[in-house]
Design a protein around this nucleic acid. Sequence first.
RNA 1: GCUGUCGUGGUGAAACUUGGUAGACACGCCAGCUUGAGGGGCUGGUGGGGGUUACCCCGUGGAGGUUCAAGUCCUCUCGACAGCACCA
Length: 859
Amino acid sequence: MKYNPQEIEKKWQEFWNSRGIFRTTEDSLKEKYYLLEMFPYPSGKIHMGHVRNYTIGDVVARYKRMQGKNVLHPMGWDAFGLPAENAAIDNNTHPHTWTYANIENMKSQLKRMGFSYDWDREIATCDPEYYRWEQLIFLKMYEKGLAYKKRTFVNWCESCQTVLAKEQVENGCCWRHTDEEVVLKEMDSWYFKITDYAEDILDKCDDLKGWPERVITMQRNWIGKSYGSIIKFPLADSSEVIDVYTTRPDTLFGATFMCFAPEHPMLKEMVKGLPQEKEVLSFIERTMKVDSFIRTSDFTAKEGIFTGRYCINPVTNHRMPIYAANFVLFDYGTGAIMSVPAHDQRDFEFAKKYNIPLILVIKPADKDLYVEEMTMAYEGEGILVNSGIFNGRGNIEAKDSITEHLNSRGIGHKTVNFKIRDWNISRQRYWGAPIPIIYCERCGALPVDEKDLPVRLSIDLNLRQGGGSPLPFEPSFYDTACPRCKGQARRETDTMDTFVESSWYFNRYACPDYKQGPLDRTKVDYWMPVDQYIGGIEHAILHLLYSRFYTRVLKDLGYVDFKEPFVNLLTQGMVCKETQTCRTHGYLFPSEVEDSRCTKCGEPVITGSIVKMSKSKKNVVDPNDLVDRYGADTVRIFCLFASPPERDLEWNDQGVDGAFRFLNRVWRLLDDNLQEISNARPFSGAEGTLTGELKGLHRKTHETIKKVTVDIEDRFHFNTAISAIMELVNEVYKYLNSAADKDDQAWTVIRESIEATVLLLSPLVPHIAEEMYRILGHDDLLLDVSWPSYRGEALEVEKITIVLQVNGKVRSRIDVPVSSTEDEIRKAALEDERLVQFLDGKEIRKVIVVKNKLVNVVA
RNA sequence: GCUGUCGUGGUGAAACUUGGUAGACACGCCAGCUUGAGGGGCUGGUGGGGGUUACCCCGUGGAGGUUCAAGUCCUCUCGACAGCACCA
């Protein structure tokens, strides 16, 4: 019988489904294991990235289950988001309709892959039964001051028609529209106070032993903690004081001017009525029009304008001119800096351009410096000069003393500063969870009453051509009564960032139908935290940082009892493929290429670089087509075999053929010898003494069990696990082809090898394994079978090969009994004919014996 | 510029936890067998150089070092990728 993946995959999927074997319930007698893959956005259909991610997860889930763990393996949908709105406008449907149609479609695709999800726990974040709890959590956060509203400069994406969080801006562009520059806009937005938790999120990075180092590093960098001082500079001719943050208080005596970020609100106040006012205002306007990424990037020339005002250096009493400057960041430190041109390259360039004097305050130990001769700032260490009572001190150790000195006079203090900003969660979009706030002209901003939740998104309204949320134009949504005075009031029409939904969804899988609150503590306590989380590296900061923050909030609100949601994290690499381009037709789909020529014009195709699969580059492979052609098992094993999970996977059509061939080879192993194997007695350990090749095969079987177990358990190295299974299969074939007479004992050992192969393969390629297991005469389902263990005695050998080296180079090998002592090995080695030849009477200076491994003779 | 990851055959990759036979396993390629052909299957070969064989020399980006022994450890250096980037 031929291997027919389509038939057996359909059969087993239906069978598993009818038995409900993927359903999970709490069981205090069993050890729980929560395996989670990042849930997908329901874009329409699954792509190879999903397939790889979810295959890796499924292997672990099935493996852990066979190990006897109570495994939670859920799946759901990150269902709010902009594409739904755009698609809805384009297709004249509703985001709700579009989203749920996609969910249905993708769900059937996932089922076709044979993934072992407990679909009873499925959640979709656009379901009011989900987002009502998110709104409740928002209200609790609002109560505690962790959600607040403020007016400031925000990052605005014109394409999305919405505000973005700082984390969602990449290279000055929107993370979804990489060619759309983000612009600054001053407006009201809602924020989550992630900065309150920055310190703890940073500290506990050390505890995330199961996370990849680079993700931790990225989070640390993003939080960006630095130690420095706040120094107060009096504004000349005024009672006002300007706060400045610096990590270099040691250079304070060399500060000769001050720079403000253009956005700084004090700036406009300061110049009022001065002759410079008009010029300064136009500079501000001009600078702010330039995208802030370009404006504040390294290669942009430093530019500024004198405001006409001065401040006083609090230690030297010098008048320092105040500038507005393009390179000063508004959202870092205080938005104003003290400039020390002699010891900071940026300040140096600025000072040269605007003829501002330099004062040298740090002298390097090995040479003299003169400000007139300097061509660049001196940023190294040295001894303080021109620094009053601090002269002669080392600049590093003087940092604290100077701050101390300022502190005693009430004009400065030590502080820590973070790069991370509060999370802007307001989105001026329709397809998201409404922010549960009501504005009343008499009573102000008020939270929606808990009993009135959820604030439902109106489903029957017209989307606006050209984008933008319809909510502010839809009285049926925003008209409401004030919760306090019952007078007419208006709802908040901003919705929440979709990253809010994904910051807590993993908890909800523990209790997807819970009606009394966001989370059922008993169940969450049983399942959480997630033991293994698997997903793409692109969420290293966004989702993974937000989730760590949100979990801390949930803990403080009493909803959960842990701070870190994900114990172990695996970031899988991207699925890549080379691009193919035609000179006239641009990127080509594989179907548009024949014999390396473009099918439209016959031009030779140019093979490009290997990059992430994407629709825009047309270098995509549709998982559906592959499953049609080879079956899900082949697709699964190819993804697992081609490279280790954390590395990028290069798509290779021939590799898929190879994977298919391997499964056929495994299939035939059983199919070609069906009679003998079916009749063979299972291995019981009472077979008597095995000898020769049969003993070798028996040993190989158990070596493979050991290796595969270690590879999956300790490292998720499925590629080497598979190669080990391939070796075992090759070994069985070799034995079948070489052994002349095969008696009962032989078939028992062969059967044992094949049974082991099937069990070891079962998490990787569950359908073919299930079918073969049935053919072998078993009634139970593989998920309910125990993972095989190896027999220690099977691994034992009598003889071992020792490598003989002369001066570190392999020259010969000998077999010695395992029990040999070092002396016996040494003796045997020195008697070896080839070795004697090699030494050729040379004087032996040293002999190193490594037991069970090698002998190295130094001559 | 800072931070991190990584450099191994024609290709994907093993060996890295513990310094001890470099290239397992596969893809591709070559030869042979099988088949009416195609496909498929089977057997063998496949890092580079030399030699009729036996076998020898070289080889893990490069240069040093530690060691009986280095892909693995240390120092320097070159290159690739990723993240952050005028962070005061």
